[in-house]
Simulated assay, not measured.
Amino acid sequence: MNIPAFGLGTFRLKDQIVKDSVSTALALGYRAVDTAQIYDNEGAVGEAIAESGIPREEIFITTKIWIENLSAGAVIESLKVSLSKLKTDYVDLTLIHWPSPNGAVSVAETMQALVEAKKQGLTHQIGISNFTVALMQEAIDAVGAAEIATNQIELSPFLQNQQVVDFARQHNIAITSYMTLAYGEALKDATIMQIAEQHGATPAQVVLAWALQLGYAVIPSSTKRANLESNLQAQTLKLSPQDMAQIAQLERNGRLVSPQGLAPEWDA
């Protein structure tokens, strides 16, 4: 099963706020929700999904294993805890959230544990997040590229992450873009605002359409119904080759997420 191109992100949203966001998104037609163990919101996300009345098999749920749970003995047990919180027997996709700092746990150990979780039916697909080219190669060496559904990475008009994208594409590994709107900074960019005006669209729709047209999955988050609804319409916005070329020129290696002690040595 392919990863849905459009989903809802839940980073930084908790308790009733995340529950409302997920409930509203599902009511509007979203069918993919992205969470993580470290977000401390799997319980609220699970409640919103359970109360939505939408059949479980129609919703694509992604969660991510936190660094403390990357060892072979901890991956499956922690995933079972996540499933309990999410009120489901399985998730559709489980990612390594961040590579183990300083390689304390090898990529191979965690990937092999995720393959076992998949065999046990706890997750339908597995993948990685925040992996560099070198780390992707380690994951491929461990379990084969065909096992890796996606690499979820920070990717925006200001950080196009081309080396990672190119390497992933060579191995048929999908890219999921997070922070696509660059914490909202991309919405203030003059080029993007101009393209939006030409199309009668919002800047957010333009940025999301750009990522979608490049073949990436996107998981924007919002707590506002109007924005959740508006973002969905990016799927039908068609940007011209000239629009795409103009946005490509905005690259400036503008990385926003690089936590000290957690981030790997990024590709240039």
Rank of each mutant, 00 (worst) to 15 (best):
N130D: 05
A113P: 08
D141I: 14
G29F: 08
L237Y: 01
D243Q: 08
R255D: 04
A117N: 06
V115Q: 05
T132M: 03
F131N: 01
R252K: 15
E147D: 11
A48Q: 05
L93N: 05
A268D: 10
Y90C: 13
L187Q: 14
D89F: 15
K224L: 11
I153M: 07
F60W: 10
L8P: 09
E251R: 03
A139K: 03
L232E: 01
Q235E: 05
Q162R: 12
A174V: 08
V45E: 02
Q242L: 11
M244R: 04
G184A: 14
W210Y: 14
Q170E: 09
Q162K: 14
T10N: 00
E109I: 15
D92H: 02
E47H: 13
N151C: 13
A25K: 04
S221W: 07
T94H: 02
D243I: 06
N2F: 13
E185L: 04
L228S: 01
L212Q: 00
Q249W: 07
A234W: 05
D20M: 15
D89E: 14
H199R: 01
V45M: 01
L13Y: 02
L93H: 03
I247F: 08
L181G: 08
L228W: 02
A168W: 00
Q198D: 10
P101M: 12
I219G: 07
T110L: 14
V115L: 13
P259T: 15
L262R: 13
Y39K: 08
A182H: 02
I65T: 02
P203F: 15
A174Y: 03
S258R: 05
D34H: 05
I173S: 02
T62S: 13
H97A: 06
I219S: 10
K224W: 06
K224E: 04
G9H: 04
Q249C: 09
D141M: 07
S71G: 06
V105M: 11
D34V: 04
P264L: 10
I67R: 10
A217D: 12
A174R: 05
T94S: 10
A134I: 12
V18H: 00
D40M: 15
A117Q: 03
P220Y: 14
T202V: 11
E197W: 05
E185D: 10
S177M: 07
T88D: 00
G261Q: 09
I96P: 02
Y216W: 13
Q112F: 14
Y30L: 11
L122G: 00
G200C: 06
Q112S: 15
R225T: 13
T176Y: 01
M193D: 05
G9S: 06
